[in-house]
Amino acid sequence: MTHARVSMTLNGVRIEGSAEPRMHLADFLRLRGDLPSIRVSCEYGVCGCCSLMVDGLVVRGCLLLAVQADGRDVRTLEGMAEQTQDLRAAFVEHNALQCGYCTPAMLLTAHELITVAPDADRDAIRDGLSGNYCRCTGYHAIVDAVEATAQARRTHKGDDHDGR
């Protein structure tokens, strides 16, 4: 099988590699061995486990070929550690993760959701996360954690304004 050269900015660092044209982006990143947050589960674009960020948007890593990410800016949870720090702490506090398999993708999706819709209520959070399956928690604690983080970010932002 022929390989294609692929280069991208991965978590802020320019990388080059080669991939079979049929290899999806999640496998390309997973097989590097240094990004444990990348997982696959259904590889059909349904469960959301492989979600990652391409050019600032959360996408399914299994529905994008590695060669399609050529020249793009790709981020995984490892590269979003700082931005998701409060959300991760809330997940721990609310026990919003059990086995942890869905968690990195859930965090990226939730971060994007409350960045785009900071006022999202519980129903909106449930809708926004509905493309990320979790088989362990029943979602209640995840919604709690995301809701609490959104609220804290709103308060924090409000404080900033007051301070100026």
């Binding site: 490892e78 991760r88 968690t103 990195p104």
Partner: peptide, 21 residues
């Protein structure tokens, strides 16, 4: 009390069998 290993999992730092080479 929060689970001691939840923080690690929340960073995506896990080693599942498919990750082992």
């Amino acid at each position: 009390l929060p689970r001691p290993n939840a923080e690690r999992l929340s960073r995506g730092a896990a080693r599942y069998t498919p990750d082992i080479d």
